[in-house]
Nucleic acid binder design. Structure first.
Lengths: 104, 104
DNA sequence: TTAATAGTTAACTCTATGGTGAACGATGTG
DNA sequence: CACATCGTTCACCATAGAGTTAACTATTAA
């Protein structure tokens, strides 16, 4: 659902997670430290992000206790598609808006 | 605030408003009819969208009772900038991800 | 002038959601 | 084996926010 993606990224903490994962895969504990939140809170945020397909999980290679989270390849394409769609119509609106501004 | 833009577009009704305004300026009553919600509810949604700079208001030319809402030129640029920023790092991650996938 | 319309705001209710602390299973370390 | 660590889930609380009804102002129409 596109709606889920919007709901997921509405939260600042989850956006911060996405930003951090953008610069490389990471583990929940590391993310919690960097963001400065508790592990239970972050775990639930990661669950939401997983549910939308924005991130994926794998077992850690070295330590089987740890998990590795990474950004999914197509996790944000729906969002970009929405923006493109609106802006497509919007471009025409800009011309009309300029005419309106000049008129007043 | 970038946060405000995300919060504003987290709501499906407000996204629908943005979509409708993408295809042309409109009035609150017309938007309420098309979306199928009450006028008070829509009025508050428009207030939120105004507060983030996504839409602008003008008095109607013909009927001084009505208002004309339109998309603001730079209302969504912050959002697109965020997406671009994340995806910039992300592109490098994709290569790493492929290597990881081939390895497993 | 009286009535109707456009839009907003206020007060209220209800639901969704984020944070916290406790507890759990699984894995590693002394 | 005893113990710490990683990550998750559960139960609880507190807050934010979306919808509704009613009321209000301003403008138009009869």
């Amino acid at each position: 659902m596109v709606n889920d993606v919007w709901a997921a990224l509405a939260d600042p903490t989850r956006r911060r997670v996405v930003e951090l994962l953008g610069s490389g895969p990471s583990r929940p504990s590391e993310l919690a430290d960097r963001i400065g939140t508790s592990r239970p809170a972050l775990s639930r945020h990661l669950k939401v992000l997983r549910g939308t397909g924005i991130v994926t999980v794998d077992l850690d290679d070295t330590d089987a206790r740890g998990l590795t989270y990474r950004l999914a390849p197509d996790g944000l394409t729906a969002l970009r598609a929405w923006l493109d769609q609106v802006q497509a119509h919007w471009t025409d609106q800009l011309a009309e808006f300029k005419r309106h501004a000049e008129r007043s």
